[in-house]
Amino acid sequence: MINTDICIIGAGPVGLFAVFEAGLLKMRCHLIDALPVVGGQLAEIYPQKPIYDIPGAPAIIAEDLVNNLMKQIEEFKPGFTLGERVEALEKQADGSYIVRTNEGTDVHCQVVVIAAGLGSFEPRKPAVEQLEYFEGKGVHYMVKKPEQFRGRNVVLAGGGDSALDWTIFLADIASRVTLVHRGDTFRGAPDSAEKVYDLAGKGKIDLILQAQVNKLGGNGVLKEVSILGNDKSVTTIPTDDFIPLFGLSPKLGPIADWNLGVEKSAVIVDTFDYSTNVERIYAIGDINTYPGKLKLILCGFHEAAIMMQSAFKYVYPDQKLSFKYTTVNGVNPF
């Protein structure tokens, strides 16, 4: 079990900066994010885009902002659990919480901060018959351990960078790789697309364009996929695994089940301290809502500062909080 003062759900810019505000008050944090990297929407949706409304930064590339935040919080030594989604919050007898993820990671904390943005990024599922039935029995939405595909027949579907990159990578591991794409060209990185055509030309992979996987079949485990061409032709090929890679989109998910006040997929908070209706649970950044809320990173930063002052009483119930400026006090690393 991981023990910390504050468990932050979401490692986007607001979750990351919250670590700094907590650190100034000598509170330790552990962050959990469904993505395998930090940065949230900035990392997943627009890493290369310049952002113009971060105070003090006339123009900053999104991934640079994330890197700067990671540098800013480094001395407060936050812990990270990435690639796992928080499923449940379990209140303990003394008021503290255990935060549980979908992979069985448990984090014990005094305070829970939901900085989940628009929800956890979940894979987009294509309309394929029996897709959900074969989840865990041959269908994978991400490649976490490439070695598990060694010597197997794999069918990938998709036309973006993810599909191209994994096709290239698995070509050397799987016994047979087939990539199925709806279009007739790839719009991903030209180098990757070229490599895929090259592999197909050499017969190292099978490339099926202008077609989509529309049905899965098998007896208890996946055995074959049906592929429907844009010309309505149908092909069936045997396979052990099917990996649809159609990007990620955010979903509120388990947050809706925690008895919090939720309105239009956002958690209602009190602007006094950005607390939710459940004691010791706060919500900051895009995930919260209140009259006048703006979904801006800078608003999330402000909410983090205020919220941490309130959280102090749960972490240090016997101490008196005294407000200090970093210019006077400096920043005291852990």
Partner: peptide, 14 residues
């Protein structure tokens, strides 16, 4: 434009 086409191309149902 190219960006729109790139994004549409990644969708399962475009």
């Amino acid at each position: 434009n190219d960006q729109e086409l790139d994004t549409l191309d990644t969708l399962p149902n475009a």
